[in-house]
């Protein structure tokens, strides 16, 4: 089984393997292999299109966590220039699960902040699997307040399984760190655009997710609890994660329908990891368009809109 492909992509993987094989023998064979390869490639594309046109919530959540999926730093590298990473919360430590810094987007100075997953065991541990500790959220808050002072828009990239559930995190006030960010972001006097690029895991995601626009990559997920956690608590079994994923409606399409997400950013065929450059370019276009719109709104109005938008979250009836 090819590990670059998820279980539901195996038919595509098989076709791709066949194509590889043909290429390998291609040079010394007599028959016209090129034609056969291009026929198989078309077939593979059609198959991918068909599989990806009807993904269920659980399959999407596997894509959102795909080991090859581009992470925050992959986007920063492709979309921005002059990135200077800024470290530390000035009180305790620098949390590598959240990266942030100043950069230019099409020449314009912005503050970029995002959770960062790691590749390979060493980096995964260093990044703590993108599960921030309080100092990570406090670093993010420090950078956001700095952005406000220097009139820079804030762009956040959300990609975390959740805030770190550890003894040290509790000792240093994980709850307060998250709560404080929600409190501060609600009233920061600068435009904020938040984008879910992968996994939007609960309060740990929301802690850098309050703003004027919420974008979501097509195969990102955003939920109040992981499908596994939801399954364990509500179904009393770890086996129902796929059912829980469906019930919670964690996909971009569903959340757009519920008006919780403003815009879905299209992913390349087969997902962001198949073409990180293409994905970065789509995202850059979307961010620039949204920044343009936000720029045209006077600051008072922008803050009032942000507040009203937060206030309208929820469903209830009134007798």
């Amino acid at each position: 089984m090819n590990m670059n492909f998820l279980e539901f992509e195996q038919p595509i993987a098989e076709l791709e393997a066949k194509i590889e094989e043909l290429r390998y023998v291609g040079s010394d064979a007599e028959i016209n292999i090129t034609e056969e390869i291009s026929r198989l490639q078309t077939k593979s594309r059609e198959l991918t299109e068909s599989i990806f046109s009807k993904l269920d919530a659980w399959q999407v959540s596997q894509l959102a966590r795909h080991p090859q999926r581009p992470y925050t730093l992959d986007y920063i590298e492709r979309m921005f220039t002059d990135f200077e990473e800024l470290h530390g919360d000035r009180a305790f430590a620098d949390d590598a699960a959240i990266v942030g810094g100043v950069a230019r987007l099409d020449g314009r100075p912005v503050m970029v902040i995002g959770q960062q997953k790691g590749r390979g065991t060493t980096e995964k541990l260093k990044r703590n699997f993108a599960m921030p500790r309080p100092e990570g959220y406090r670093k993010a808050k420090r950078l956001m307040e700095m952005a406000e002072r220097f009139k820079m828009p804030i762009l956040t990239f959300i990609d975390t399984p959740g805030a770190y559930p550890g003894i040290d995190a509790e000792e240093r006030g994980q709850s307060e760190a998250i709560a404080r960010n929600l409190f501060v972001m609600a009233q920061l006097k600068t435009p904020i655009i938040c984008t879910v690029i992968g996994e939007g895991g609960s309060g740990g995601a929301l802690a850098i997710g309050v703003g004027d626009r919420l974008l979501m990559l097509e195969y990102g997920t955003y939920a109040v609890i992981s499908p596994e956690g939801c399954s364990t608590i509500l179904w009393k079994s770890a086996e129902k994660a796929s059912v829980a994923a469906e019930a919670m409606g964690i996909t971009s399409a569903r959340l757009k329908e519920l008006e919780l997400v403003d815009e879905i950013v299209k992913e390349p065929l087969g997902g962001a990891h198949r073409d990180p450059d293409g994905m970065a370019s789509n995202l850059k276009t979307a961010l620039l368009e949204n920044l343009d719109v936000l720029d045209s709104i006077p600051l008072d109005k922008l803050l009032e809109n942000r507040y009203q938008r937060l206030m309208q979250y929820g469903n209830f009836s009134e007798r």
Binding site: I178, A179, L182, S202, G203, L206, Y222, A223, V224, A247, M248, G249, I250, L255, L258, L260, L310, Y313, G314, N315
Partner: peptide
């Protein structure tokens, strides 16, 4: 689901 998260 996400509506409850947004109450935070």
């Amino acid at each position: 689901a996400l509506f409850s998260l947004m109450q935070m």
